[in-house]
């Protein structure tokens, strides 16, 4: 019966453009965090500077996407899946922008650490970085492919990220207790690790919005809508 594209081809193109801009922004944020972590582990201040200055571009894209969404809402009066797509875009753009800021934080730690002597490598930090990057990548894939299953995997895997962060946290504490001269360095690494853990949280937000976008059901904060699903009181 009906084709899967909008009768109005300009509208169809505008929606496609919005999706593409979000993906481009997601890619920039992914690259920024990868750069920040590499600058940290490879003690590369030039790369750190590049990540910090690159954030302006991410911020610009956020403003651009916001404008696109507002224009679509005002001029097209979107409904149903289009409405859910555009409101999702409006929400995940904020998460992506914040993720860009977290990458900048990591890059700033990298700058700081590049002036200190090297500390011993922390394998978990690299793993944390890889996992948080893959969480964002997967969330963006889920967004493009409208894949609820993939989005749900991202939501579930956030626990792995949290466990990894927790382990690294303990390791760093032990490291500092053994040798108080490393406290400054270890604290910087701990701070960077925290940024990666938060990065994963924002990826989870994106994934939750993907579930909403595809299914029209809100999986965030169960019980916060009316009385339904509220915590069951225990007697």
């Amino acid at each position: 019966m009906a084709p899967d594209t909008h009768t109005d081809k300009v509208y169809e193109a505008e929606l496609a453009q919005l999706r593409d801009r979000l993906l481009v922004m997601g890619g920039k944020v992914e690259a920024a965090m990868a750069g920040g972590v590499r600058a940290l582990t490879a003690r590369d201040p030039a790369l750190a500077e590049k990540v910090i200055s690159g954030d302006k571009d991410v911020n610009r894209t956020e403003v651009e996407i916001d404008d696109m969404c507002r224009r679509l809402l005002a001029l097209r009066q979107p409904a149903a899946s289009d409405l859910r797509f555009i409101t999702t875009a409006l929400k995940i753009v904020t998460d992506l922008e914040r993720m860009g800021d977290l990458a900048v934080n990591v890059a700033e730690r990298a700058l700081d650490l590049s002036h200190s002597p090297p500390s011993r490598p922390f394998h978990d930090l690299t793993e944390l970085a890889d996992l948080s990057a893959s969480q964002l990548g997967k969330a963006l894939d889920a967004f493009v492919e409208r894949d609820v299953k993939k989005a749900e995997e991202v939501i579930a895997d956030d626990d792995l990220l949290d466990a990894l962060y927790s382990r690294l946290f303990s390791d760093l504490l032990a490291y500092m207790m053994e040798d108080s001269r490393v406290i400054r360095r270890a604290t910087s690494i701990m701070f960077a690790a925290k940024q990666l853990e938060r990065f994963g949280d924002h990826a989870t937000n994106v994934a939750e919005m993907v579930v909403y976008m595809v299914r029209g059901t809100d999986v965030r904060h169960p019980g916060s809508r009316g009385g339904e699903g509220a915590p069951v009181p225990t007697v």
Partner: peptide, 15 residues
Amino acid sequence: VDSLDTPVRVSPEGP
């Protein structure tokens, strides 16, 4: 990490 969540009844469809 340490779940402080009270068990909740999840209702994907809302009230």
